[in-house]
Amino acid sequence: MKRLALTPIQAFFLLVAAMGVLVLAVEASGNGYFQTFTALMLVNVMLAVSLTMTNGFTGMFSLGHPAFMTMGAYVAVLFTYPVGRKGFAMPALPEVIAQIHLPLPVAALVGGLFAALMGWLIGRLVVHLQTHYLAVATLGLIIVVQTFALNLDGFTRGGRGLTGIPREATLALIGVSTVLVIVLCWRIKHASLGRAMLAVRENEMAARCFGIDAFRLKITAFVLGAGIAGFCGALLPHVVSVMSPKSFGLILAFNLIAIIVVGGQGSILGAVIAAVFISLGSESLRMVEESTGVYGVTQVIVAVALISFLLVRPKGLFGLKEPFIRTS
């Protein structure tokens, strides 16, 4: 096939150029709505790509991303919330932390590391579970984390939520992170680590017979996914300036699954494209929702569209493939 085929290096430069143009153009437009939307869309891309690794490469079915996002978000906010107001909003915070103010990139990394650590602790318990069980256990994890966020109101203000979080998440920061996450997942997929993950996905027992430590690989994928989710979760409140225990829940988990299923459960390019289009689609549906006052339509349409899409293309857009880019 003599079709468009870039080398990975060319593809990388194309990605960087496209991201640069997007960020600069949106930044230059000065339109707050566009800026917020682009930020949310790019975070969706990061989440989708990381979930493509956790679920797509290894064949696990985790719904736990929103749980790790909530963890990352609350941990990061502890360090970025205006110091003067911490005493009022987070009375339980130890004096040491209450005095610290970290810049967002550092705080988000701390949040991501915390989520990764929790992912490691939880993953050791759950990754050996089969499909349904893992899905339910991680769905349960969302509820457990929400329960804690709701009850630890000395740190989170409970159900009232935190408001006035500084909007420090610049488009440049989000754009750079997105490129890094895509490159990281791409490198993993095409290195021995990713090949081993794909082997586990296709046939776990056969992979183990080749000496692949399936348990360790799944943990690795789970922890990396949790870390990236935590990082993304940490960025989001700094885009929209509010955070509550229910910010990231079942609906988000479902939308992320919809994105990676459409993308092809293993294709990074597919996940990126699906994330962009589903973000655009649900945003325009949301505007319809607001103008007509019929809330819930978006989710119904996404759900029905997903079922129909699966009927037509059971393997998603690209399956495992990365079209337009030479991979071997």
Partner: peptide, 28 residues
């Protein structure tokens, strides 16, 4: 009925979609 014979994960996603659709239709 429409997805019988598809891999397990597809069935799983379909029921999840059905649940989301039912909940939101009820909300509407």
């Amino acid at each position: 009925r429409s997805i019988s014979g598809a891999p397990m994960i597809t069935g799983f996603i379909v029921t999840l979609s059905a649940s989301i659709a039912i909940q939101n239709l009820a909300l509407i």
